[in-house]
Design a protein around this nucleic acid. Structure first.
Lengths: 342, 342
DNA sequence: TTGAAAGCGCTAACAC
DNA sequence: GTGTTAGCGCTTTCAA
């Protein structure tokens, strides 16, 4: 039979025959209590089924042990694995994880800040690439502890955890080169887009490193969507000269390229090799399955949460950027270039 | 310049020249306060940037305005859209959403209950198909308000929100029948699995409704994984007689069937038609793209959260089962049966 | 090593 | 309509 009203610290104190202060200490700073008293308290806790009322504790300590996660699209399947990492690291250290789906709506961004201002969350993991509107509206305001993932927040001094895009793109392009490709296109040039820029940099680094020149007509604009990848590929075909391989700024774009090439009845990867970046959830289901660079999402989630919790516990933020390596995933969209064997 | 210490209700009271009780009333029950005083309070709030300290309020009211979501795998891409629905409905009514990733680990299930017992969450959305371990361990214990999604919880009197599996399977099978198929296999027979059972029931209902007999050899066991779908298809081929269409218990299984059939060099959907169930995220990317029944995930998320919040506000739980219709999604894995045109 | 007591900031009786 | 006041359950000085 369970009690109608949950046991309080006072109930425990009475049963253990000590003061409530001692109960609190026995539970939170066991070292500061005599062994015998601690045992009595433990037993009384067991008998009553006592759990500390987090509300009361939080009110007193001004800490909630909650972390707010602000993401533009919680429904994005590629967010799921990050979320798992975030949740795992948080729960390991006794923290809870609160979800805020902003949809890039300034009003919603501001609204979620109530969790911070009302003390219901101690820190923020930011996946939006910018400060929440309600915060950016008051420059000079003291910011809550935050860590950015996915996209860094410009000029806000917020630590960032993410994938090393330039290095990953270099590895991807090198893989194409190692398969004998020399005429490699980059689909996804996008001035002003940070991530796209880094990936293009990696592509250029690899090409330069191999002593290969880039035909400017092989660098095409695309905004990261499947449709833009398809359209870019079509534009390519008005030229007389074609690449043998396509390195795409991301998997969605690569899918667009595959669609365009398949529609033109090319045989993939026989006629053209294609690489993506991200390893999104369906990369292995498209045909041909996509060779790509896998983002270490789980790792990024865990690392960023660990960093934020360390900050909350007073550790200095340390390095501003924490970059994780992307992993080369070999599938079936890349083949040896038969025109030019190295 | 923002204050170092956040404003309290007392600060507001002083500036507005009223008592803290009046401030509280002006904010929470505006009708009970004179217009003029309310205006003064509002202004003082604006001047101080006051926000209610949720910890203090929650301590007092014994409500947290938080809902705990317990899911076995937060990383499942098919969970994302449910989560969006849950979050949308919650945030619309001022509630926050807390994530618990149980991984079907009893210890973790119990651990997350601390949010309930410590008053940090008011209710639970359950996606695990069973009571959290810490709760089921004490039968007769008073349960927190809960709503189950995806899988109903047996014998616990917990309201359930989900898809109408039997009806959806009937529609799917009818679609196959309408395309002229008469020899239709069911891949995914699984005694004891509730959802699989309902889908099989729908399949049998449709077949019976069309006056078609089911060859018992066309009903194959499979456990819902891609591999089991592939294996079941292989077992089919030791028979001399083959169906013209496969209705699979879910998309993952259907993918296995497609893999097996493609490996045998059949031309799909020309040689065999295949239907799945769920519309998982990559259903449109497999080849041939999968004709399937779409689960209204967003809707299920919203409806279940609305139901839980209504329960929290004292409304009776009402109907125990809330079933939503699955939607027929036509893609390219089903073709007319040329052997038998209706 | 322990206990007494002062709040944390708020809501809700109750009294005026 | 408004003010006074008693807690909600806990942590943390301060004294003993």
């Amino acid at each position: 039979m369970s009690a109608v009203k949950p046991a309080t610290i006072e109930d425990v104190a009475v049963i253990a025959g000590v003061s409530i202060a001692t109960v609190s200490r026995a539970l939170n700073e066991p070292g500061k209590v005599a062994d015998s008293t601690r045992r009595k308290v433990i037993e009384a806790v067991a008998r009553t089924g006592y759990t500390t009322n987090a509300m009361a504790r939080n009110l007193r300590t001004r800490k909630s042990n909650m972390i707010l996660i602000l993401a533009p699209d919680v429904g994005d399947p590629n967010f799921s694995n990050i979320l798992v990492g975030l949740e795992t690291a948080a729960s390991r250290r006794g923290y809870g994880v609160l979800i805020g789906n902003t949809r890039n709506d300034p009003e919603r961004e501001t609204d979620y800040l109530r969790f911070i201002s009302s003390n219901q969350a101690d820190g923020i993991i930011l996946l939006t690439g910018h400060l929440p509107f309600g915060l950016s509206a008051h420059p000079g305001m003291r910011l809550p502890p935050m860590v950015a993932i996915n996209e860094p927040v410009p000029d806000a001094g917020i630590p960032f955890v993410g994938v090393d895009n330039a290095e990953g793109a270099r590895v991807a392009t090198d893989h194409l080169i190692s398969q004998g490709h020399r005429d490699i296109a980059f689909i996804g040039h996008a001035p002003g887009r940070l991530v796209a820029g880094l990936r293009e940099t990696g592509y250029r680094t690899a090409m330069a490193g191999a002593g290969l020149e880039i035909d400017p007509r092989f660098v095409l604009e695309a905004d990261g969507t499947t449709e833009s990848g398809r359209a870019a590929t079509e534009r390519m075909f008005v030229r007389d000269r074609l690449p043998t391989a396509f390195f795409c700024v991301n998997d969605a774009t690569a899918l667009g390229v595959i669609i365009a090439l398949t529609a033109r009845s090319y045989n993939l990867p026989h006629d053209f090799s294609i690489m993506g970046f991200d390893d999104i959830s369906y990369a292995s289901f498209v045909s041909p399955s996509l060779t790509t660079m896998k983002q270490p999402r789980l790792q990024i989630g865990e690392a960023s949460m660990d960093l934020l919790l360390a900050m909350l516990e007073g550790e200095p933020a340390g390095h501003r950027h924490h970059l994780h390596r992307a992993e080369l995933i070999l599938r079936n969209s890349v083949a040896l270039n038969r025109k030019h064997r190295p």
